[in-house]
Design a protein around this nucleic acid. Structure first.
Lengths: 168, 168
DNA sequence: CCTAACCTTTACGTCAACGGCAAGGTTTGG
DNA sequence: CCAAACCTTGCCGTTGACGTAAAGGTTAGG
């Protein structure tokens, strides 16, 4: 769209990739990528003359991010959508404002973007906290077992087996 | 089964719960609980005369654990199954061995159980690590934005917009 | 003993997240 | 210019993780 402005100072030598290459690069399938587009998680940077989807490096980053949220964090696509929100639209607005508008406007946009990233971080941190809690629980169970083991190894009688501590 | 041994020293006053109470207690639905049983994630401690499922506190713990793995950690039921493995069967064996068998055998069983918990912890830790990595990525993006913000606030020109650092 | 409130199994329905065709258009090396 | 290798949009199929309704048995209180 705005990519072919007259005398672009630094037209990034970023070759645009077709969906299959993107798939190979991100570990996703073409089908998934199209599906994510359908859900509004991302749109390809461009389309070829014959309507082929063409992706730039920013799209790659975005897809890798999505994959991370899906596989590593276990978020549903609906949650991911919420996390990404309308970042796409924002990016376009940002680009336009960065290029032409005044100080205050640009400042606001940046502040906004930072706030969004902060929210993403918050969400991840919450998830980590819950996992940490689960680890603590597991460790408690471990200690419980280790206690019994020590008991057995020191050759004592099996204690009355008081069970089920470590709540919450 | 072995619950009604003659003159049980401390028959836990643990009232057995029916599926709906368990559901309320764990935040799951009866349907989910039955489904988990179908998948082999747990079996109720007992059945009533008329085949009602009856759960003890250990079952509750287990279900809460499952729910944590599902909701907090985002594991699939298949993964959860792997995590829980045949803990059920092990527990029965453990109980039998604890009650009657010799030192070495009991020791081995405990060591085994501890190893399993350690593996669970390892799995959780791996997941946390990946989330931490994602947070680092997000923080990098944040810093990138913050840099631009400072730039804008100090009233300078929009820099050539060198984009896309922070890889891996 | 009766009934309301549970429970059982069985079975079909649903929603998310894709997989896998089919029918046809696009690109590109030779 | 032509074939192989991509791509497009449909559209139906599948798997996981349940929801929901049906047809009937069970339990607890009055």
């Amino acid at each position: 769209m705005s990519r072919l402005s007259p005398a672009d100072p630094a037209p990034p030598p970023t070759r645009l990739l077709r969906i299959q290459e993107v798939a190979a690069e991100t570990g996703l399938t073409p089908r998934s990528i199209r599906y994510y587009e359908e859900l509004g998680l991302l749109a390809p940077a461009a389309r070829s003359e014959g309507a082929y989807r063409l992706y730039d490096t920013e799209d790659l980053e975005r897809l890798r991010f999505i994959r991370g949220l899906r596989d590593d964090a276990g978020f549903s696509l609906a949650e991911i959508r919420r996390l990404l929100e309308d970042e796409q639209a924002r990016a376009r607005i940002r680009a336009r404002f960065q290029a032409s508008h005044d100080q205050a406007e640009r400042r606001e946009i940046l502040v906004d973007a930072i706030a969004r990233v902060d929210r993403q971080i918050e969400t991840l941190r919450t998830k980590i906290d819950r996992l940490e809690t689960m680890i603590l629980d597991a460790r408690a169970r471990r200690d419980h077992l280790a206690g019994h083991l020590e008991e057995v190894e020191s050759g004592r009688e099996p204690s009355p087996h008081e069970h089920g501590q470590a709540r919450r």
